[in-house]
Design a protein around this nucleic acid. Structure first.
Lengths: 249, 249
DNA sequence: CCTCGACCTTGATCAAGATCAATTGGTATT
DNA sequence: AATACCAATTGATCTTGATCAAGGTCGAGG
């Protein structure tokens, strides 16, 4: 495990950036990108490393470029709940607030594109393409949070697991295979414990339900982290959601 | 129960509007208010009445002026989870989306200040004071949703009830009594069933835990809906949250 | 006054998931 | 090769809250 990499030599040209199409900057024109470029820098985090702790004063905001990070809150007696899953292009930090409310942790190796906070806030005030995009992304996150509330409040353990697998299957089939062509293979970026934190379960229950899904043939495990989904429709049935998947706009 | 009141004669001058300081319009100047005034109208809903159903196409967005409404999602087998509680000044609807994802229901009599959607969206694009305020409100809602996720995923039934009472106590002491001066009295705007929908419990469990809190003297019930909190600190202890209450900025 | 219906409370029982504990399998360390 | 370590699995038992069921309270309307 290496120390935090503050002085990274990584530098990505916005034009070739893998999250160019979906991040806060997706609506920026060339001159706006140049402004952003002046206040941006990259940081790498190793899997398991903390990015910020709840209560920290943070002087940057930014986007996840590669890897997976998680937002979590810990109660004083140690109970832990993940409240956000940050995938590439997701935004980290809240403009207009000094301290973070949540622990942000790298669950895999993470590369972040950071913006110094004060200049970013100034830029936001004068650049509608940034603030509008951020509003849109925040509304999407709110929708995701609400879907997650249904999961936490009303779904059974098995439904929770199935729902989580569907989320990863959707995300990975988006970026790799042209969706649902036969079986889907996903690499779980989370430990059983992190899955439990996400789903409001214990890691033992996660493990048992994974085994149960394996026994009924809904999933096939290759090692601990690689999951094969032979029939996506069958997995969908296990989520408890209604069939259409709620495609809205 | 009366029919939906589309042709309400209610009209409030923005200058005297009770939610003027906190709603989407809170940063508008006189001329912006005038623009809003041209596209605004009022609608009343009776307690229990549906405002919109999930999947509906809605041609307005707006603010709750008085009363309490709830956002909820229903699973196909009838399990129901509330995903948002809309109090005066809260915003309803999502700009840029045709259909609603959630059922919006008036839990008490509600007065809404509605804006026709298309003109509102156009106005947003040209009026930073509106879109910035909406971003801020959405970020606040996201924080609230995340706190709620901790509640749903990790809190015990008793902690859930206590947390809900604290939320209402905070909101009502904000608008009435100068906070924590001895005992606090709150009128619950929710039935036991609605509380259960909010908390991811059954109504029986809600009732039992209310009785338990009554028996230990943490709360006193006057009728079914009026709750007296003799010692707010003691109620806070029952929530499972850490003591400081997480005052951030 | 009585009845009806909505809302709430309480009791008995059951099941899902938590907890506690032991074991396995894989990988890094020496 | 032996050891230690970590994540994951599996088993046994316990607890919390769900479920099923019965009754109570209160206000509105005949």
């Amino acid at each position: 495990m290496t120390a935090p990499d503050f002085t990274s030599t990584v530098h990505i040209q916005c034009g070739t950036c893998p999250i160019r199409q979906r991040a806060v900057c997706s609506r920026c024109d060339a001159s706006e990108l140049e402004e952003l470029d002046q206040i941006k820098y990259y940081r790498k985090f190793d899997a398991g490393q903390s990015i910020v702790w709840a209560g920290d004063c943070v002087d940057f905001v930014g986007s996840v470029v590669t890897g997976v990070a998680s937002l979590a809150q810990t109660m004083e007696d140690g109970r832990r709940q993940m409240v956000g899953l940050l995938l590439p292009s997701d935004f980290v930090g809240r403009p207009g607030r000094k301290q973070t409310r949540y622990d942000v942790t790298a669950t895999t190796d993470v590369l972040m594109c950071c913006f110094r906070k004060a200049p970013f806030e100034k830029l936001m005030a004068t650049t509608p393409s940034v603030s509008q995009r951020l509003l849109e992304m925040t509304l999407d996150e709110l929708d995701a949070a609400r879907e997650w509330m249904v999961l936490l409040g009303r779904k059974t353990a098995k439904e929770k697991i199935a729902s989580l697998l569907v989320i990863f299957a959707r995300r990975s089939s988006q970026s790799t295979v042209p969706a649902y062509a036969g079986s889907i293979i996903i690499d779980l970026p989370l430990t059983r414990e992190a899955m439990a934190d996400y789903l409001g379960l214990t890691l033992e229950t996660v493990s048992r339900q994974m085994s149960a899904l394996k026994k009924t043939g809904v999933i096939v495990l290759q090692g601990k982290r690689q999951v094969i989904i032979p029939d996506f429709e069958q997995l969908l049935l296990e989520t408890g959601d209604d069939s259409d998947g709620g495609m809205l706009d």
